[in-house]
């Protein structure tokens, strides 16, 4: 499976409504058939209508051992930081709003640095989404962000595009 990237984990979006319906935790969901780690992205910009119910399903998914949780789009929506405490995510993905022009806005960079520190304390690694310039890449790295995604590094496509590290970055 996943012949195009046999050694790579996969990040996949899961809508909160799918958690409410619970079928994602039944064991036959495609999430559980991947040979490598799967990171299930829960978008932070969509409110959980039944948070406690969702939390129980997420706990079941985590118990499988190879499916990890990712809070997606942090900073784009309601920014309920308690989600990070409650969900124990393996990763937090910063919305591109926090990344855009971060190199020109010291207060924004300080905020991202604080978020990275908080996530690290909570046991989560941080991905910066939407990196489009070398200056933004430098700024997120200076803020302590460990992972990046964006057009500067690789555009979306198929087959999986190669990573292009910008020169002099």
């Amino acid at each position: 499976m996943v012949a195009a990237a046999p050694e790579l984990p996969v990040f996949a979006n899961v809508h909160p409504d799918e958690l409410v319906q619970r079928f994602i935790a039944t064991g036959d969901d495609p999430l559980f058939s991947h040979k490598h780690d799967v990171y299930s992205e829960i978008t932070e910009s969509v409110p959980f209508s039944h948070f406690e119910q969702c939390l129980a399903v997420l706990r079941d998914i985590q118990a499988s051992g190879r499916v990890h949780l990712v809070i997606d789009d942090l900073g784009a929506g309601y920014s309920n930081l308690m989600r990070i405490v409650d969900l124990h995510p393996a990763f937090v993905k910063l919305d591109m709003q926090l990344v855009r022009d971060i190199d020109k806005k010291p207060r924004q960079q300080a905020l991202v640095k604080s978020i990275v520190h908080m996530c690290t304390d909570q046991g989560a690694r941080v991905v910066a989404e939407g990196i489009e310039t070398r200056s933004e890449l430098h700024a997120v790295m200076d803020a302590g962000v460990q992972f990046g995604q964006g057009y500067l590094l690789a555009k979306p496509g198929f087959p999986i595009p190669p990573v292009t590290w910008p020169e002099k970055a």
């Binding site: 984990p9 997120v140 990046g148 979306p156 595009p161 190669p162 990573v163 590290w165």
Partner: peptide, 16 residues
């Protein structure tokens, strides 16, 4: 369905 690599900024290699 398309894919966009997530890059480890320390190793500069694709993580996922």
């Amino acid at each position: 369905v398309v894919f966009q690599p997530i890059v480890d900024l320390a190793t500069r290699e694709s993580f996922a």
